[in-house]
């Protein structure tokens, strides 16, 4: 029944449309509300998608890697490095492990100490890059074995800083989704209020229609169709403006950092186009609910 009513919205009934007065403050109020809410929803969606990407990156890319740092006197460095690599080679759950070369370590330190860093003259710890397999390894067991075989080796599995960051990114994604839901609910509430105002302002029209034998569904349809189409139009404008706004955010290449990554990537640019039909659906049900309730009151 509701699906049929929904299809009638787009099929139209020119006679029924004319029954409701064409203008009024509710017309622009509805369109403006839909445009503003959709504009905000586009940014909330961009925030949610960007947070999702960040959470995935921090969650997946770093979850399977770890670093072992060996701090030992110069004479023992090679021996401890070999001992650590031997331990790792016999540890279940380790896919591969390799000691970073001097050149790689120099490259890591270059942003802070410049290109001519004399690694030999400084007590720089040796780094060993560890990649775990899909089963994972027992980090506590590995720590104990390292302590026994290479006292200067410290396992850093990134858990300490990765978990809170991934958690924060996940929360941001949830915040974005919650914002979209709240924006939708606010839009539904405002459209319901506007529909109620329109129905009250047209009490005389409703009285006449009742007098000549109009069913509630007929009267409601005239209002529902108008509000749904107004919302669809306003929301489409809001989505377009939101997309333009997101497109003009500073590029990540220029400034770097999380905020500049706020936006859409690839097929993600299509997501905002879902918002106008969703907004129209919200308007359809909100106005229908308001219309039938008001018509019952006006009996």
């Amino acid at each position: 029944m509701k699906l049929l009513a929904l299809t009638e919205i787009f099929r139209g009934d020119s006679q029924a449309d004319r029954v409701v007065p064409p203008s009024g403050h509710t017309a622009w109020l509805t369109s403006f509300t839909a445009a503003a809410m959709t504009f905000l929803a586009v940014f909330a969606m961009a925030l949610s998608l960007a947070s999702g990407r960040l959470a995935d990156r921090w969650g997946d890319a770093l979850a399977r890697s770890a670093t072992i740092r060996i701090s030992a006197p110069a004479g023992q460095m090679d021996a401890q490095t070999r001992a650590v690599l031997d331990v790792l080679a016999t540890t279940p759950g380790i896919e591969r492990a390799r000691a970073m070369s001097d050149a790689e370590q120099r490259a890591l330190l270059e942003p802070w100490f410049g290109p001519d860093l004399p690694l030999d003259a400084l007590p720089v710890p040796r780094l060993i890059e560890v990649t775990e397999d899909s089963d994972g390894y027992d980090s506590e067991g590995l720590r104990q074995r390292l302590a026994a075989e290479a006292p200067g080796a410290v396992l850093d599995d990134h858990t300490r800083w990765r978990k809170p960051l991934a958690l924060a990114a996940g929360r941001l994604r949830l915040l974005g989704l919650t914002s979209i839901l709240l924006i939708g609910a606010t839009m539904a509430a405002m459209i319901t209020l506007a529909a109620n105002a329109a129905l009250s302002a047209n009490a005389q029209v409703i009285r006449v229609l009742r007098l000549v034998g109009a069913k509630d569904a007929y009267i409601a349809r005239a209002f529902v169709r108008r509000f749904t189409l107004r919302t669809l139009t306003g929301s489409a404008v809001g989505a377009l403006l939101g997309l333009i706004g997101v497109a003009f955010l500073p590029s990540a290449d220029v400034a770097g950092g999380f905020l500049t990554g706020l936006g859409f990537q690839g097929a993600g640019w299509l997501w905002p186009f879902v918002l106008p039909p969703l907004a129209a659906l919200v308007a359809f049900f909100a106005t229908r609910f308001a219309a039938f309730r008001k018509l019952k009151e006006l009996t």
């Binding site: 009742r210 007098l211 000549v212 034998g213 109009a214 069913k215 509630d216 569904a217 009996t299």
Partner: peptide
């Protein structure tokens, strides 16, 4: 209400 509308 619909039946009333039809009778009217």
């Amino acid at each position: 209400r619909d039946e009333v509308a039809l009778l009217r």
